[in-house]
């Protein structure tokens, strides 16, 4: 599904990612762990098409060169990024935003756009699954939401848009245990044989709830070790500093 070959990314002449390689097959869950400044967020930004990086190498998503696609086209193709810091958008109603987003993606995929009633039915169902306060959907997008609510809102969007590849950028940071479980349940319910996940995190904690197939350790812009879930436990006990 996703093939990253020799990815190099610089920002303001500072190298962030270097010789980065990763392959994710349909249905797989990959976790990337690494210390602050190792390039985790840069990776998720680049996969989503954020501007401002000098990049080289190759990223193929379903055999299509991602560098040729704009951010919204990547979303249309099924890439979703759950933001580490979801933005507050004043004046934009959450429900209307969700509907605009879903229909933009459905339209691009050649599917019928949902009308208001169909959409509300879907969003109600998903909100209930994620124990997301429905009343909040009538508020301005993320404005006045707590940290946990913002993260849950990301997962709600993910579940409504049902992407092929979901990238979770430190979705667990700032969540209490209850919220963490809800978020993990949300992710697990989306796990299907052709949906893949890339989970970026500092801590092993989230991986107790979402069992990854592979764990990669990212340091200084490249993957220094890959393994199964046990690698996360090893990291947790040794710490990044003593790891090598």
């Amino acid at each position: 599904m996703l093939k990253i070959k020799n990815l190099k990314a610089d920002i303001d002449n500072k190298s962030i990612l270097n010789n980065f390689n990763l392959e994710i097959k349909p249905g797989e869950v990959h976790a990337i762990m690494g210390p602050n400044g190792s390039g985790k967020s840069t990776l998720s930004n680049i996969l989503s098409g954020k501007k401002g990086y000098d990049v080289s190498g190759e990223i193929l998503f379903e055999n299509k060169n991602l560098f040729e696609l704009e951010t919204e086209e990547r979303a249309h193709k099924g890439i979703f990024l759950a933001f580490q810091y979801p933005l507050e958008i004043p004046g934009v109603n959450t429900n209307i935003f969700l509907k605009t987003s879903l229909n933009a993606i459905r339209k691009a995929r050649g599917e019928k756009e949902l009308d208001a009633i169909e959409f509300l039915k879907l969003v109600k169902l998903k909100a209930k699954e994620l124990k997301f306060d429905e009343e909040k959907l009538n508020r301005q997008l993320n404005v006045g939401f707590s940290g946990g609510e913002k993260k849950k809102n990301e997962i709600l969007q993910m579940s409504i848009l049902s992407p092929k590849l979901s990238i979770l950028d430190e979705t667990d940071s700032g969540l209490d245990i209850d919220a963490l479980k809800i978020v993990a349940d949300g992710v697990n319910s989306l796990r299907k044989k052709d949906n893949s996940f890339l989970i970026i995190t500092h801590y092993q904690r989230l991986l107790d709830y979402i069992k990854p197939d592979y764990v990669h350790v990212l340091m200084d812009g490249k993957i220094i070790k890959s393994g199964g879930p046990e690698l996360a436990l090893e990291l947790e006990s040794k710490g990044y500093e003593n790891f090598n």
Partner: peptide
């Protein structure tokens, strides 16, 4: 805010 624009575009809206 370019970050807000990026956020919305990552949800399928064009610029």
């Amino acid at each position: 805010n370019e970050d807000s624009i990026f956020y919305l575009m990552s949800r399928g809206l064009n610029y």
